[in-house]
Write a protein that binds this DNA or RNA. Sequence first.
RNA 1: GCUCCGUUGGUGUAGUCCGGCCAAUCAUUUCGGCCUUUCGAGCCGAUGACCUGGGUUCAAAUCCCAGACGGAGCACCA
Length: 466
Amino acid sequence: MRLAPNPNGPWHLGSARMPAVIGTYKDRYDGWMLCRFDDTDPETKRPDMDAYGEIIEAIEYLGFEPDEVVKASDRVDTYYDHARELIDLGGAYTCSCGGEEFSELKNAGEACPHREKGVETVREEFEAMVDGEYGSGEMVLRVRTDIEHKNPALRDWVAFRMVDTPHPREEAAQYRCWPMLDFQSGVDDHLFGITHVIRGIDLQDSAKRQAFVYDYFGWEYPEVVHWGHVQIDAYDVKMSTSRIKELVENGELEGWDDPRAPTVASLRRRGIRGEAIVDAMIELGTSTSNVDLAMSSIYAANRDLIDEETDRRFLVREGNQIPLGGSPPDEANPPLHPNHEERGVREIPAVDSVLLEPDDVPGREERIWLKGLGCFQFTRDVLQYTGEDIDVVREGEVDVVHWVPASESVPLRLRTMTGDVRGRAEPGITEYEADDVVQFERIGFARFDSVADDGEKESVAYFAHP
RNA sequence: GCUCCGUUGGUGUAGUCCGGCCAAUCAUUUCGGCCUUUCGAGCCGAUGACCUGGGUUCAAAUCCCAGACGGAGCACCA
Protein backbone atom coordinates (compact mmCIF):
# COMPACT_ATOMS: atom_id res chain seq x y z
CA MET A 1 0.00 0.00 0.00
CA ARG A 2 1.10 3.58 -0.32
CA LEU A 3 0.11 7.04 0.72
CA ALA A 4 0.93 9.60 -1.92
CA PRO A 5 0.30 13.03 -0.42
CA ASN A 6 1.11 16.27 -2.13
CA PRO A 7 2.96 18.32 0.49
CA ASN A 8 1.46 21.63 -0.60
CA GLY A 9 0.02 22.29 2.85
CA PRO A 10 -1.10 20.69 6.09
CA TRP A 11 -3.90 18.19 5.88
CA HIS A 12 -7.59 18.86 5.85
CA LEU A 13 -9.94 16.19 7.07
CA GLY A 14 -10.48 14.73 3.65
CA SER A 15 -6.79 13.89 3.45
CA ALA A 16 -7.10 11.94 6.67
CA ARG A 17 -9.18 9.38 4.85
CA MET A 18 -6.10 8.23 2.97
CA PRO A 19 -4.07 6.99 5.95
CA ALA A 20 -7.24 5.97 7.80
CA VAL A 21 -8.33 3.50 5.17
CA ILE A 22 -4.97 2.54 3.71
CA GLY A 23 -3.33 2.24 7.13
CA THR A 24 -6.19 0.12 8.39
CA TYR A 25 -5.78 -2.26 5.46
CA LYS A 26 -2.07 -2.37 6.12
CA ASP A 27 -2.61 -3.27 9.76
CA ARG A 28 -5.35 -5.74 9.04
CA TYR A 29 -3.40 -7.72 6.46
CA ASP A 30 0.03 -7.12 7.89
CA GLY A 31 1.02 -5.23 4.79
CA TRP A 32 3.73 -2.77 3.95
CA MET A 33 3.07 0.94 3.57
CA LEU A 34 5.02 3.60 1.80
CA CYS A 35 4.53 7.31 2.25
CA ARG A 36 5.65 8.95 -0.96
CA PHE A 37 5.47 12.71 -1.27
CA ASP A 38 4.39 13.44 -4.83
CA ASP A 39 6.09 16.81 -4.95
CA THR A 40 6.88 17.06 -8.63
CA ASP A 41 5.24 20.39 -9.26
CA PRO A 42 7.43 23.23 -8.01
CA GLU A 43 5.02 25.84 -9.35
CA THR A 44 1.25 25.34 -9.41
CA LYS A 45 1.14 23.05 -6.43
CA ARG A 46 4.32 24.31 -4.93
CA PRO A 47 5.45 22.22 -1.97
CA ASP A 48 5.28 23.82 1.43
CA MET A 49 8.50 23.01 3.22
CA ASP A 50 6.75 22.58 6.57
CA ALA A 51 4.10 20.27 5.17
CA TYR A 52 6.40 17.25 4.84
CA GLY A 53 6.83 17.08 8.58
CA GLU A 54 3.28 18.15 9.37
CA ILE A 55 1.88 15.37 7.23
CA ILE A 56 4.03 12.74 8.89
CA GLU A 57 2.87 14.07 12.26
CA ALA A 58 -0.74 13.89 11.13
CA ILE A 59 -0.28 10.26 10.05
CA GLU A 60 1.18 9.43 13.45
CA TYR A 61 -1.61 11.25 15.24
CA LEU A 62 -4.07 9.13 13.32
CA GLY A 63 -2.24 6.11 14.64
CA PHE A 64 -0.20 4.86 11.68
CA GLU A 65 3.42 4.67 10.77
CA PRO A 66 4.71 4.33 7.21
CA ASP A 67 7.33 1.63 6.71
CA GLU A 68 9.22 3.92 4.40
CA VAL A 69 9.05 7.60 3.51
CA VAL A 70 10.37 9.00 0.24
CA LYS A 71 10.11 12.18 -1.76
CA ALA A 72 9.53 12.03 -5.48
CA SER A 73 11.73 15.10 -5.85
CA ASP A 74 14.67 12.94 -4.70
CA ARG A 75 14.00 10.44 -7.43
CA VAL A 76 13.96 12.57 -10.56
CA ASP A 77 17.00 10.83 -12.05
CA THR A 78 15.18 7.52 -11.76
CA TYR A 79 12.26 8.96 -13.72
CA TYR A 80 14.67 10.23 -16.38
CA ASP A 81 16.15 6.75 -16.71
CA HIS A 82 12.74 5.24 -17.25
CA ALA A 83 11.84 7.94 -19.71
CA ARG A 84 14.97 7.09 -21.74
CA GLU A 85 14.04 3.46 -21.67
CA LEU A 86 10.52 4.26 -22.77
CA ILE A 87 11.84 6.38 -25.63
CA ASP A 88 14.02 3.51 -26.77
CA LEU A 89 10.99 1.29 -26.74
CA GLY A 90 9.25 3.74 -29.01
CA GLY A 91 6.79 4.63 -26.29
CA ALA A 92 7.36 8.35 -26.08
CA TYR A 93 8.16 11.37 -28.21
CA THR A 94 9.10 14.94 -27.64
CA CYS A 95 6.56 17.48 -28.74
CA SER A 96 6.70 21.25 -29.07
CA CYS A 97 3.03 21.84 -29.83
CA GLY A 98 1.32 24.53 -27.81
CA GLY A 99 -1.24 23.28 -25.33
CA GLU A 100 -4.29 24.46 -27.25
CA GLU A 101 -2.89 23.42 -30.55
CA PHE A 102 -2.30 19.88 -29.39
CA SER A 103 -5.64 19.74 -27.63
CA GLU A 104 -7.45 20.50 -30.86
CA LEU A 105 -5.57 17.82 -32.77
CA LYS A 106 -6.13 15.36 -29.97
CA ASN A 107 -9.84 16.01 -29.76
CA ALA A 108 -10.02 15.43 -33.49
CA GLY A 109 -8.09 12.21 -33.05
CA GLU A 110 -5.22 13.44 -35.17
CA ALA A 111 -1.53 13.01 -34.47
CA CYS A 112 0.79 15.99 -34.41
CA PRO A 113 3.83 15.97 -36.71
CA HIS A 114 6.22 15.35 -33.81
CA ARG A 115 4.75 11.93 -33.25
CA GLU A 116 6.72 10.51 -36.16
CA LYS A 117 10.15 11.71 -35.08
CA GLY A 118 12.95 9.18 -34.99
CA VAL A 119 14.08 7.73 -31.68
CA GLU A 120 17.47 9.47 -32.02
CA THR A 121 15.90 12.88 -32.36
CA VAL A 122 13.58 12.21 -29.44
CA ARG A 123 16.50 11.13 -27.28
CA GLU A 124 18.48 14.21 -28.13
CA GLU A 125 15.58 16.49 -27.45
CA PHE A 126 14.77 14.74 -24.21
CA GLU A 127 18.39 15.11 -23.03
CA ALA A 128 18.08 18.77 -23.88
CA MET A 129 14.96 18.91 -21.71
CA VAL A 130 16.86 17.26 -18.87
CA ASP A 131 19.68 19.75 -19.31
CA GLY A 132 17.22 22.58 -19.02
CA GLU A 133 17.77 23.92 -22.52
CA TYR A 134 14.11 24.68 -23.03
CA GLY A 135 11.93 27.11 -21.12
CA SER A 136 8.54 26.41 -19.66
CA GLY A 137 6.06 25.36 -22.35
CA GLU A 138 8.58 24.92 -25.13
CA MET A 139 8.87 21.15 -25.11
CA VAL A 140 7.22 18.16 -23.48
CA LEU A 141 7.66 14.42 -23.60
CA ARG A 142 4.48 12.58 -24.49
CA VAL A 143 3.65 8.95 -24.05
CA ARG A 144 2.59 7.37 -27.33
CA THR A 145 -0.77 5.77 -26.51
CA ASP A 146 -3.52 5.62 -29.11
CA ILE A 147 -4.28 8.96 -30.69
CA GLU A 148 -7.66 7.63 -31.82
CA HIS A 149 -8.60 6.13 -28.48
CA LYS A 150 -12.31 6.66 -27.93
CA ASN A 151 -11.61 8.27 -24.60
CA PRO A 152 -9.89 11.59 -25.35
CA ALA A 153 -8.46 11.66 -21.84
CA LEU A 154 -6.14 8.81 -22.72
CA ARG A 155 -4.64 10.11 -25.95
CA ASP A 156 -0.89 10.78 -25.90
CA TRP A 157 -0.60 12.34 -22.51
CA VAL A 158 2.29 14.42 -21.19
CA ALA A 159 4.93 12.61 -19.15
CA PHE A 160 7.50 15.40 -18.65
CA ARG A 161 7.36 19.15 -18.97
CA MET A 162 9.63 22.10 -18.34
CA VAL A 163 9.19 24.22 -15.21
CA ASP A 164 11.20 27.41 -14.84
CA THR A 165 10.55 27.82 -11.12
CA PRO A 166 13.13 25.96 -9.04
CA HIS A 167 11.87 23.39 -6.56
CA PRO A 168 11.79 24.76 -3.00
CA ARG A 169 13.85 21.83 -1.74
CA GLU A 170 17.51 22.60 -2.15
CA GLU A 171 18.26 18.99 -3.09
CA ALA A 172 15.90 19.25 -6.07
CA ALA A 173 16.38 22.88 -7.03
CA GLN A 174 18.54 22.13 -10.06
CA TYR A 175 15.88 20.25 -12.03
CA ARG A 176 13.88 22.02 -14.71
CA CYS A 177 12.38 18.98 -16.42
CA TRP A 178 9.71 17.48 -14.19
CA PRO A 179 7.60 14.34 -14.58
CA MET A 180 3.83 14.55 -14.45
CA LEU A 181 1.95 12.60 -11.80
CA ASP A 182 0.85 9.82 -14.10
CA PHE A 183 4.39 9.02 -15.13
CA GLN A 184 6.08 9.51 -11.77
CA SER A 185 3.45 7.73 -9.76
CA GLY A 186 3.06 4.90 -12.23
CA VAL A 187 6.78 4.20 -12.34
CA ASP A 188 7.19 4.44 -8.58
CA ASP A 189 4.25 2.19 -7.79
CA HIS A 190 5.98 -0.53 -9.77
CA LEU A 191 9.47 0.11 -8.46
CA PHE A 192 8.29 -0.01 -4.86
CA GLY A 193 6.31 -3.15 -5.46
CA ILE A 194 2.97 -1.57 -4.59
CA THR A 195 0.24 -4.17 -5.00
CA HIS A 196 -2.82 -2.12 -4.06
CA VAL A 197 -3.60 1.47 -4.84
CA ILE A 198 -6.49 3.38 -3.33
CA ARG A 199 -7.09 6.91 -4.56
CA GLY A 200 -9.71 9.45 -5.51
CA ILE A 201 -12.07 9.37 -8.48
CA ASP A 202 -10.23 12.36 -9.89
CA LEU A 203 -7.56 9.84 -10.81
CA GLN A 204 -10.00 7.39 -12.37
CA ASP A 205 -8.33 7.64 -15.75
CA SER A 206 -4.85 7.41 -14.33
CA ALA A 207 -4.82 3.65 -14.24
CA LYS A 208 -5.82 3.56 -17.90
CA ARG A 209 -3.20 6.12 -18.83
CA GLN A 210 -0.46 4.45 -16.84
CA ALA A 211 -1.43 1.09 -18.29
CA PHE A 212 0.17 2.18 -21.58
CA VAL A 213 3.50 2.70 -19.81
CA TYR A 214 3.14 -0.58 -17.95
CA ASP A 215 2.51 -2.34 -21.25
CA TYR A 216 5.66 -0.89 -22.81
CA PHE A 217 7.69 -2.09 -19.83
CA GLY A 218 5.87 -5.39 -19.50
CA TRP A 219 4.82 -4.64 -15.93
CA GLU A 220 1.70 -5.74 -14.13
CA TYR A 221 -0.58 -2.99 -12.92
CA PRO A 222 -1.55 -3.00 -9.20
CA GLU A 223 -5.10 -3.51 -8.00
CA VAL A 224 -6.76 -0.15 -7.86
CA VAL A 225 -9.79 1.24 -6.05
CA HIS A 226 -11.20 4.72 -6.50
CA TRP A 227 -13.27 6.50 -3.94
CA GLY A 228 -15.41 9.59 -4.17
CA HIS A 229 -14.85 12.92 -2.55
CA VAL A 230 -15.74 13.37 1.06
CA GLN A 231 -17.49 16.43 2.39
CA ILE A 232 -17.97 17.14 6.04
CA ASP A 233 -21.02 18.82 7.44
CA ALA A 234 -20.73 21.36 10.25
CA TYR A 235 -18.13 23.52 8.52
CA ASP A 236 -18.55 26.79 6.69
CA VAL A 237 -15.04 26.59 5.36
CA LYS A 238 -14.62 24.64 2.16
CA MET A 239 -12.36 21.65 2.54
CA SER A 240 -9.60 22.62 0.19
CA THR A 241 -5.94 23.09 0.93
CA SER A 242 -5.68 26.21 -1.17
CA ARG A 243 -8.86 27.74 0.28
CA ILE A 244 -7.78 27.14 3.86
CA LYS A 245 -4.34 28.47 3.08
CA GLU A 246 -5.94 31.63 1.73
CA LEU A 247 -8.09 32.12 4.83
CA VAL A 248 -5.13 31.57 7.12
CA GLU A 249 -3.00 34.02 5.15
CA ASN A 250 -5.58 36.79 5.15
CA GLY A 251 -6.25 36.28 8.84
CA GLU A 252 -9.82 35.00 8.67
CA LEU A 253 -8.62 31.84 10.35
CA GLU A 254 -6.07 32.05 13.13
CA GLY A 255 -4.15 29.12 11.82
CA TRP A 256 -4.51 25.61 10.47
CA ASP A 257 -5.66 24.50 13.90
CA ASP A 258 -8.34 27.18 14.26
CA PRO A 259 -11.46 25.44 15.61
CA ARG A 260 -13.40 26.59 12.54
CA ALA A 261 -10.95 24.97 10.13
CA PRO A 262 -11.82 21.52 8.77
CA THR A 263 -8.31 20.28 9.36
CA VAL A 264 -6.61 17.42 11.13
CA ALA A 265 -4.70 19.90 13.27
CA SER A 266 -7.93 21.56 14.38
CA LEU A 267 -9.52 18.35 15.62
CA ARG A 268 -6.31 17.44 17.32
CA ARG A 269 -6.24 20.72 19.17
CA ARG A 270 -9.82 20.15 20.24
CA GLY A 271 -8.73 16.97 21.94
CA ILE A 272 -10.34 14.56 19.51
CA ARG A 273 -8.40 11.34 19.17
CA GLY A 274 -7.01 10.38 15.81
CA GLU A 275 -8.57 7.00 16.32
CA ALA A 276 -12.05 8.55 16.34
CA ILE A 277 -11.41 10.13 12.97
CA VAL A 278 -10.18 6.81 11.65
CA ASP A 279 -13.24 4.99 12.98
CA ALA A 280 -15.58 7.41 11.25
CA MET A 281 -13.60 7.30 8.01
CA ILE A 282 -13.61 3.53 7.95
CA GLU A 283 -17.39 3.52 8.18
CA LEU A 284 -17.56 5.55 4.99
CA GLY A 285 -16.14 2.66 3.03
CA THR A 286 -14.65 3.22 -0.40
CA SER A 287 -17.58 3.75 -2.75
CA THR A 288 -16.98 5.82 -5.85
CA SER A 289 -19.84 8.15 -5.12
CA ASN A 290 -19.22 11.32 -3.17
CA VAL A 291 -20.03 11.05 0.50
CA ASP A 292 -20.91 13.40 3.32
CA LEU A 293 -19.30 12.57 6.60
CA ALA A 294 -21.28 13.74 9.61
CA MET A 295 -19.11 15.25 12.29
CA SER A 296 -21.45 13.55 14.74
CA SER A 297 -19.95 10.23 13.65
CA ILE A 298 -16.51 11.43 14.66
CA TYR A 299 -17.91 12.80 17.90
CA ALA A 300 -19.72 9.56 18.69
CA ALA A 301 -16.55 7.57 18.05
CA ASN A 302 -14.52 9.93 20.21
CA ARG A 303 -17.04 9.78 23.04
CA ASP A 304 -16.74 6.02 23.04
CA LEU A 305 -13.00 6.36 23.42
CA ILE A 306 -12.74 9.01 26.11
CA ASP A 307 -15.93 9.05 28.16
CA GLU A 308 -14.87 6.48 30.74
CA GLU A 309 -11.58 8.08 31.55
CA THR A 310 -12.47 11.75 31.44
CA ASP A 311 -12.92 13.79 34.61
CA ARG A 312 -16.07 15.82 35.12
CA ARG A 313 -15.82 19.48 35.99
CA PHE A 314 -18.07 22.52 36.17
CA LEU A 315 -17.87 25.46 33.85
CA VAL A 316 -20.42 28.27 33.83
CA ARG A 317 -20.56 30.32 30.68
CA GLU A 318 -21.44 33.97 30.97
CA GLY A 319 -22.81 33.35 34.44
CA ASN A 320 -25.32 35.32 36.45
CA GLN A 321 -24.27 35.87 40.03
CA ILE A 322 -26.84 34.92 42.66
CA PRO A 323 -26.36 35.01 46.45
CA LEU A 324 -26.94 31.92 48.55
CA GLY A 325 -29.15 32.01 51.64
CA GLY A 326 -30.05 29.59 54.38
CA SER A 327 -27.29 27.37 55.64
CA PRO A 328 -26.07 25.20 52.80
CA PRO A 329 -22.93 23.06 53.12
CA ASP A 330 -19.83 25.17 52.60
CA GLU A 331 -18.32 22.78 50.11
CA ALA A 332 -19.61 20.47 47.38
CA ASN A 333 -17.91 17.18 46.62
CA PRO A 334 -19.23 15.73 43.40
CA PRO A 335 -17.28 12.75 42.01
CA LEU A 336 -14.64 13.18 39.36
CA HIS A 337 -16.47 10.51 37.40
CA PRO A 338 -19.95 9.26 38.24
CA ASN A 339 -19.15 5.67 37.26
CA HIS A 340 -15.87 5.62 39.16
CA GLU A 341 -16.28 6.85 42.71
CA GLU A 342 -12.85 5.43 43.54
CA ARG A 343 -11.23 8.19 41.54
CA GLY A 344 -12.22 10.63 44.24
CA VAL A 345 -14.22 13.79 44.53
CA ARG A 346 -13.81 17.44 43.68
CA GLU A 347 -13.71 20.19 46.28
CA ILE A 348 -15.84 23.13 45.31
CA PRO A 349 -16.29 25.83 47.94
CA ALA A 350 -19.79 27.26 48.18
CA VAL A 351 -19.67 30.60 49.92
CA ASP A 352 -21.85 33.69 49.65
CA SER A 353 -22.90 33.41 46.04
CA VAL A 354 -22.73 31.28 42.92
CA LEU A 355 -22.77 31.73 39.16
CA LEU A 356 -25.39 30.02 37.03
CA GLU A 357 -25.75 29.94 33.28
CA PRO A 358 -28.50 32.34 32.21
CA ASP A 359 -30.72 29.51 30.99
CA ASP A 360 -30.46 27.75 34.33
CA VAL A 361 -31.60 30.64 36.52
CA PRO A 362 -34.91 29.47 37.96
CA GLY A 363 -38.11 31.48 37.92
CA ARG A 364 -39.49 33.11 41.06
CA GLU A 365 -40.12 30.67 43.89
CA GLU A 366 -38.96 27.78 41.77
CA ARG A 367 -36.58 25.23 43.16
CA ILE A 368 -33.35 24.06 41.64
CA TRP A 369 -30.75 21.50 42.65
CA LEU A 370 -27.17 22.70 42.54
CA LYS A 371 -25.33 19.54 41.76
CA GLY A 372 -23.32 18.25 44.70
CA LEU A 373 -24.67 20.92 47.00
CA GLY A 374 -28.40 20.60 47.48
CA CYS A 375 -31.80 22.02 46.79
CA PHE A 376 -32.46 25.75 46.66
CA GLN A 377 -35.49 27.90 46.15
CA PHE A 378 -35.16 31.18 44.30
CA THR A 379 -36.74 33.71 46.61
CA ARG A 380 -36.29 37.49 46.63
CA ASP A 381 -33.20 37.28 44.39
CA VAL A 382 -31.56 34.78 46.72
CA LEU A 383 -31.12 31.04 46.36
CA GLN A 384 -32.49 29.88 49.68
CA TYR A 385 -31.25 26.48 50.83
CA THR A 386 -34.21 24.19 51.49
CA GLY A 387 -32.35 21.18 52.83
CA GLU A 388 -34.61 18.88 50.88
CA ASP A 389 -33.67 15.34 50.07
CA ILE A 390 -32.46 14.15 46.66
CA ASP A 391 -35.86 12.52 46.29
CA VAL A 392 -37.23 15.81 44.96
CA VAL A 393 -34.91 15.32 42.00
CA ARG A 394 -35.78 11.68 41.59
CA GLU A 395 -39.43 12.55 41.51
CA GLY A 396 -38.75 14.95 38.70
CA GLU A 397 -39.83 18.07 40.57
CA VAL A 398 -36.48 19.77 40.54
CA ASP A 399 -33.87 20.16 37.81
CA VAL A 400 -30.20 19.61 38.48
CA VAL A 401 -27.77 22.21 37.22
CA HIS A 402 -24.06 22.88 37.36
CA TRP A 403 -22.67 25.98 39.04
CA VAL A 404 -19.46 27.57 40.25
CA PRO A 405 -18.69 29.76 43.26
CA ALA A 406 -18.71 33.43 42.32
CA SER A 407 -15.48 34.31 44.06
CA GLU A 408 -13.25 31.27 44.03
CA SER A 409 -13.90 30.10 40.49
CA VAL A 410 -11.27 30.71 37.82
CA PRO A 411 -11.67 32.39 34.43
CA LEU A 412 -11.66 30.20 31.36
CA ARG A 413 -12.07 30.89 27.69
CA LEU A 414 -13.70 28.11 25.72
CA ARG A 415 -12.89 28.17 22.04
CA THR A 416 -15.59 26.64 19.86
CA MET A 417 -16.40 26.26 16.20
CA THR A 418 -18.77 29.20 16.49
CA GLY A 419 -16.51 31.50 18.44
CA ASP A 420 -15.07 32.01 21.87
CA VAL A 421 -17.14 31.86 25.04
CA ARG A 422 -15.97 33.22 28.35
CA GLY A 423 -16.84 31.63 31.61
CA ARG A 424 -15.62 30.58 35.00
CA ALA A 425 -14.70 27.08 36.03
CA GLU A 426 -14.44 25.36 39.37
CA PRO A 427 -11.07 26.00 41.05
CA GLY A 428 -9.88 22.41 40.66
CA ILE A 429 -9.10 22.86 36.97
CA THR A 430 -5.81 24.51 37.82
CA GLU A 431 -4.54 21.00 38.54
CA TYR A 432 -4.65 20.15 34.87
CA GLU A 433 -2.04 20.65 32.24
CA ALA A 434 -2.27 21.49 28.59
CA ASP A 435 -3.55 18.50 26.56
CA ASP A 436 -5.66 17.14 29.42
CA VAL A 437 -9.26 16.53 28.42
CA VAL A 438 -12.23 17.04 30.72
CA GLN A 439 -15.95 16.96 30.38
CA PHE A 440 -17.63 20.15 31.48
CA GLU A 441 -20.87 18.82 32.81
CA ARG A 442 -23.89 19.63 30.70
CA ILE A 443 -21.64 21.36 28.15
CA GLY A 444 -19.34 18.78 26.71
CA PHE A 445 -15.79 17.59 26.29
CA ALA A 446 -12.93 20.02 25.95
CA ARG A 447 -9.15 19.94 25.83
CA PHE A 448 -7.08 22.34 27.89
CA ASP A 449 -4.79 24.35 25.70
CA SER A 450 -3.24 26.40 28.46
CA VAL A 451 -3.88 26.31 32.18
CA ALA A 452 -3.10 29.41 34.20
CA ASP A 453 -1.20 28.69 37.38
CA ASP A 454 -2.84 31.47 39.30
CA GLY A 455 -6.56 31.83 39.64
CA GLU A 456 -6.70 35.36 38.27
CA LYS A 457 -5.39 34.53 34.84
CA GLU A 458 -7.50 33.05 32.11
CA SER A 459 -7.08 29.44 31.11
CA VAL A 460 -7.99 28.36 27.60
CA ALA A 461 -9.75 25.20 26.50
CA TYR A 462 -10.90 24.00 23.09
CA PHE A 463 -14.38 22.58 22.87
CA ALA A 464 -14.51 19.11 21.33
CA HIS A 465 -18.14 18.03 21.24
CA PRO A 466 -21.10 17.33 23.54
C1' G B 1 -19.05 17.76 -27.32
C1' C B 2 -16.26 12.98 -26.14
C1' U B 3 -15.22 9.24 -22.26
C1' C B 4 -15.77 6.91 -17.60
C1' C B 5 -18.37 6.14 -12.89
C1' G B 6 -22.31 6.28 -9.61
C1' U B 7 -27.73 6.61 -7.49
C1' U B 8 -30.46 1.94 -0.75
C1' G B 9 -33.88 6.03 5.37
C1' G B 10 -31.47 12.90 7.54
C1' U B 11 -26.12 10.90 7.03
C1' G B 12 -22.95 6.71 5.99
C1' U B 13 -23.16 1.61 4.93
C1' A B 14 -24.48 -3.98 3.96
C1' G B 15 -26.96 -6.63 0.26
C1' U B 16 -26.32 -6.02 -6.37
C1' C B 17 -21.23 -10.04 -9.35
C1' C B 18 -24.14 -15.78 -8.44
C1' G B 19 -32.65 -13.11 -8.61
C1' G B 20 -35.95 -16.17 -3.88
C1' C B 21 -34.12 -16.88 3.28
C1' C B 22 -34.53 -8.58 1.91
C1' A B 23 -41.93 -5.98 3.88
C1' A B 24 -33.92 -4.87 3.30
C1' U B 25 -28.17 -4.92 7.62
C1' C B 26 -25.33 -2.13 10.86
C1' A B 27 -23.75 2.65 12.60
C1' U B 28 -24.93 7.64 13.36
C1' U B 29 -28.83 11.26 13.78
C1' U B 30 -33.83 12.60 15.59
C1' C B 31 -37.84 11.47 19.04
C1' G B 32 -39.96 8.77 23.24
C1' G B 33 -39.36 5.48 27.82
C1' C B 34 -36.19 3.31 31.86
C1' C B 35 -31.85 4.40 34.67
C1' U B 36 -28.89 8.50 36.48
C1' U B 37 -27.46 14.39 41.62
C1' U B 38 -24.85 16.52 34.60
C1' C B 39 -24.18 15.34 29.86
C1' G B 40 -22.98 11.02 27.95
C1' A B 41 -23.12 5.91 28.34
C1' G B 42 -26.27 1.66 29.07
C1' C B 43 -31.07 -0.71 28.33
C1' C B 44 -36.02 -0.63 25.76
C1' G B 45 -38.89 1.39 21.81
C1' A B 46 -40.17 4.56 17.55
C1' U B 47 -39.59 7.39 12.97
C1' G B 48 -37.20 6.61 8.39
C1' A B 49 -34.64 4.05 2.19
C1' C B 50 -34.05 0.33 -2.74
C1' C B 51 -33.82 7.44 -8.57
C1' U B 52 -37.98 6.90 -12.50
C1' G B 53 -40.42 4.12 -16.38
C1' G B 54 -40.66 -0.17 -19.10
C1' G B 55 -39.08 -5.41 -19.83
C1' U B 56 -37.53 -10.64 -18.45
C1' U B 57 -39.25 -14.06 -14.48
C1' C B 58 -43.39 -18.05 -10.58
C1' A B 59 -40.11 -14.34 -8.09
C1' A B 60 -36.20 -8.14 -9.15
C1' A B 61 -32.70 -3.61 -4.59
C1' U B 62 -30.34 -7.54 -7.43
C1' C B 63 -30.73 -9.13 -14.60
C1' C B 64 -31.96 -6.14 -19.45
C1' C B 65 -33.46 -1.44 -21.94
C1' A B 66 -34.59 3.71 -21.80
C1' G B 67 -34.59 8.11 -19.06
C1' A B 68 -33.61 11.46 -14.91
C1' C B 69 -30.20 13.13 -11.45
C1' G B 70 -25.22 13.43 -9.54
C1' G B 71 -19.85 12.99 -9.92
C1' A B 72 -15.09 12.60 -12.49
C1' G B 73 -11.67 13.02 -16.66
C1' C B 74 -10.61 15.12 -21.62
C1' A B 75 -4.15 20.24 -17.95
C1' C B 76 2.79 21.41 -19.81
C1' C B 77 -1.99 20.36 -11.37
C1' A B 78 -1.82 16.57 -7.92
